[in-house]
Amino acid sequence: MPNPQNILPTGYNAMNNEESEPLSFSTTLKSQFALNNIRIQSNLLSLTTDTTTYVNLARYLKEHDFDRCLTISATDWLDTNEFEIYYLVHNLKNNIYMKVAVRIPRKKPELTSLSTVWESAAMHEREMWELFGITFVGNLMLKPLFLEDWTNLPPLRKDFNWRDYVAQEYYKTEEG
């Protein structure tokens, strides 16, 4: 008979890492990929790069203990006519978070899928495909996730006239 009291191990603050680890990792990255714009905020490293490094870096990170892909997300920058897409991954051994961003033109929203690198990436890309209309080349899962019969612009785009849509689709229809 298992006793719940008996399986409790470990003490306080088991994983609170040394400040120096993110720093030394960023130095390694800099030399490997000729990157010069890595920002360090406590245990988060972030950088913006080009589409090729976006993929190569992902493979490199996966091989270097960044096993957890937390999310792939996008931001719509209307002012520069670009989508910013980033992945946020985590290294469980050293407790370092890493965000890698890339900017692509709004006119041709296409990017290589990372679904072969991280298993959980495909579902996040599918969400971005639905809500922003970004195509991830190589992702076999690109079909509606949350919405049913959606025919308008992808709703999270900044130029989706959402107040109009709500007025038209809900308040007007529900009036009549």
């Binding site: 470990t10 306080y12 603050n13 088991a14 994983m15 609170n16 890492n17 406590s42 245990n43 469980l92 407790n95």
Partner: peptide
């Protein structure tokens, strides 16, 4: 068995 809790990892 993974000891990962944000309250201790990134307090």
């Amino acid at each position: 068995g993974v000891n990962f809790d944000i309250r201790t990892a990134t307090p």
